[in-house]
């Protein structure tokens, strides 16, 4: 007996309410955008400069005492948070201390870090500093810029590739889905106040790649079926294509999710934010390839006369001798 996620033959109608789906997707994007504009992102030091110190001690973390000890140093904005992870031992109490970038200095000076470490040692004598990272405002500004350029470049490159391989309507649909995924991911990071650092940009680009992977597989089938079922209308062809690929879509999403979930639970707290972004991306990416990319494709319509010689003159080399 085989495990099957969907029946062999499915005939769900995905396109009777495209307006509704596109509307919901649009609304979600709007919410994400508003959250991003008004609440902003919880940028890590990669993007805003400053220092993070990861501490580890046998005694429990007393955030209040840490804060009181550091307040005397007058270093401006200090965020202290305790970190929990199932992989920690009982005597492993971890906290993250984030210090804002200091005026006029590039990276935080060693003296400042020494002072902070000494102050914390006053509170918890056995404290260990397992990582100290410091980024100057100059670099962090550039990192933001590079990150934005990277995401835009990825979306642009993909737009061109799909346009070359398919038709422009497909490219628009795919890119709309990408923008949807990226925006929703940024939105959830803004809403849940999860720290947004350089690794999250990598996750964003991976989401772009994954979401596209999904969309392209559906589109590939649409292209095939548009030629196979010339007489049927676009809605029907789209429905057939999505139903045919549904089993694959779910299988792949599920295996990827399984793998990511393992990493989320067991991979440690250092990359949890990164993995969370990817999990979220796989879910929205799967949704968007059907309900955004294909729905938009349906709304835009597709030119169906590929088999006429003039339309495909550039690609039908095999007809030259015929």
């Amino acid at each position: 007996m085989r495990l099957k996620l969907v029946r062999d033959e499915t005939s769900f109608d995905f396109f009777s309410r495209t307006k509704l789906w596109l509307g919901i997707s649009g609304l979600m994007m709007a919410i994400a955008f508003v959250s991003f504009i008004f609440q902003g992102l919880n940028f890590g030091i990669d993007f805003r400069g400053g220092t993070t110190i990861r501490t580890e001690s046998a005694e429990p973390v007393d955030v209040g005492a840490y804060r009181a000890a550091l307040q005397q140093l007058e270093l401006g904005d200090i965020v202290i948070s305790e970190v929990f992870d199932p992989s920690f031992d009982a005597d492993q109490n971890v906290a993250m201390v984030r210090i804002a970038a200091q005026d006029g200095a590039e990276a935080v000076t060693p003296e400042t870090i020494e002072a902070v470490e000494a102050a914390l040692q006053g509170v918890a004598p056995d404290i260990n500093f397992t990582s100290v990272e410091s980024v100057g405002p100059k670099v962090s500004g550039e990192l933001i810029q590079t990150a934005i350029i990277a995401v835009l470049l990825a979306i642009g490159a993909v737009l061109i590739y799909i346009w070359l391989r398919f038709e422009w309507q497909f490219a628009v649909g795919a890119v709309a889905a990408l923008v949807h995924d990226v925006l929703l991911t940024i939105g959830i990071f803004s809403e849940l106040r999860i720290q947004f650092d350089l690794a999250i940009i990598a996750a964003l680009l991976t989401i772009v790649g994954y979401s596209l992977n999904d969309t392209v597989v559906v589109f590939d089938r649409v292209r095939e079926n548009l030629i196979k079922y010339k007489k049927r209308d676009l809605k029907e062809v789209l429905n057939i294509s999505i139903n045919e690929t549904l089993s694959r879509t779910l299988m792949t999403s599920l295996t990827t999710l399984l793998a990511l979930l393992a990493l989320f639970v067991l991979g440690g707290d250092v990359i949890r934010g990164f993995v969370f972004a990817m999990i979220w991306g796989v879910i929205v990416g799967t949704y968007s390839s059907i309900f955004v990319a294909s729905a938009l494709l349906y709304r835009l319509g597709v030119k169906r006369d590929w088999d006429k010689p003039d339309a495909g003159a550039g690609t039908q080399f095999s007809n030259i001798d015929a």
Binding site: A107, T130, S131, V132, A262
Partner: peptide, 29 residues
């Protein structure tokens, strides 16, 4: 110095261990 990062060997070791376990479990599933 525009950027300075120190990562302790214990944290690195923890990350490797966690990564190993997670990869094995992901693989098995």
């Amino acid at each position: 110095f525009l950027e300075e990062r120190t990562i302790g060997p214990e944290l690195g070791q923890d990350s490797i261990e966690a990564g190993k376990v997670a990869t094995m479990v992901a693989f098995a599933m």
